[in-house]
């Protein structure tokens, strides 16, 4: 089962990937923005988890989530919004769009592990 990281900041992508690897995830893909991610996921057999930033070029994280949720094959995919946006109204907007969980940056590996446990996502590799 694959994981997709969508974030335009290279350090955030690298850090999230390193944390996920430490937590035991094997197949980890990364995209710089939602448009690229939507193309990449077409190639995947099964997408278990998406970790997505909010503010990115071409398409916001929320727009990406709406696009993802519009595709029935990704109905079971878990989505974690991970962002510097910390307002209550933003959190509600992301959840309404279809995010399962929300984490405010900056974050640690422990925080990510907590969120994945809440979402019922486990490493299989």
């Amino acid at each position: 089962m694959a994981v997709m990281i969508v974030d335009d900041a290279v350090t955030a992508r690298m850090m999230t990937k390193a944390f996920l690897q430490d937590l035991g995830f094997g197949e980890i893909h990364a995209a710089e923005h939602g448009v690229e991610a939507l193309e990449l996921i077409e190639e995947l057999d099964a997408l278990e988890l998406v970790v997505v930033d909010w503010n990115m070029p071409y398409m916001t994280g929320v727009e990406f989530i709406r696009e993802l949720r519009a595709r029935p094959e990704f109905g079971e995919t878990k989505v974690l919004m991970m962002t510097t946006e910390t307002g209550m109204e933003k959190i509600i907007e992301a959840l309404t769009a279809g995010a399962d969980e929300y984490m405010m940056k900056p974050f640690t590996k422990d925080m990510l592990a907590d969120k994945l446990q809440i979402m019922g996502v486990e490493a299989h590799s």
Partner: peptide, 20 residues
């Protein structure tokens, strides 16, 4: 603080039981 609510608290409970 933000770090504390990021640890272990499901986001639905943050929305339901906390005020910013």
């Amino acid at each position: 603080n933000q770090f504390e609510v990021n640890r272990g608290l499901p986001i639905q409970l943050l929305i339901r039981y906390f005020e910013q």
